[in-house]
Design a protein around this nucleic acid. Structure first.
Lengths: 109, 109
DNA sequence: ATGTTTTATCGTGTTTTAACGATAAATAAA
DNA sequence: TTTATTTATCGTTAAAACACGATAAAACAT
């Protein structure tokens, strides 16, 4: 609860808020994690370092299969996970570069 | 592009994806950053360690004053920034605990 | 007291997200 | 070949996000 005073000596022009592109990129990654189910899926895949097939659907309780499938698609399109067809099932796993990128951009804030 | 095989030996029950509450919390923080303008505002306030009054509106080009105000409100409600009335202006600054929390939860993934 | 500046809020329209059931597509099993 | 299993996609509905102009509220200046 400390005070908060403006310092007019600092010029705004001299402050870079990073490239527009990076901001957009971070916003997209964050949007992908802007839903509890997607956070849960990502964590699940991080912890089970080998990948998980469709039982993700069972883990995410209270959501229909089609809904979970949508969430998986969002994570995949954002580059945070990867899916590979394994017979009749599909095997999802972390896309490490995506997660790394997220961490870098967050650190950049 | 390495292979991706399921390991049926790992039991899903034994894997914790963190408390539902934490997942929800991270999702909310991420949602707050799920828009480029909000990312930009946050970065601006981090870099200018003393706070900035309404010129944020000028920095965020192409958005109306009322829209920027909405974004500021979202960041404030999420606990990432703080606003304090300073005469007729309002002075925004980072809420360090919020950003710290975000970093912790991201690291937790 | 009156007018000006700054910011928040309201009302509105548009777009995007979220969720579901139903169904299609692909493979495996019978 | 037929049937079952698994997953993605389609169509729909409801809710939330986004953006804007207009306006209200508060403090300052005249």
């Amino acid at each position: 609860m400390d005070k908060c005073h403006c310092d007019p000596s600092e010029k705004y022009d001299s402050i870079s808020t990073g490239s527009k592109e990076k901001n957009r990129e971070l916003a997209l990654l964050c949007k992908a994690l802007a839903h509890p189910a997607r956070v849960q899926i990502l964590k699940l895949l991080v912890r089970k370092q080998s990948c998980i097939c469709g039982e993700i659907v069972d883990q995410i309780e209270d959501l229909a299969q089609s809904t979970v499938s949508q969430h998986l698609k969002i994570l995949k399109d954002t580059g945070l996970i990867r899916g590979e067809i394994e017979g009749t099932a599909v095997c999802y796993c972390i896309e490490p570069s995506g997660l790394r990128r997220l961490r870098v951009l967050i650190a950049d804030i």
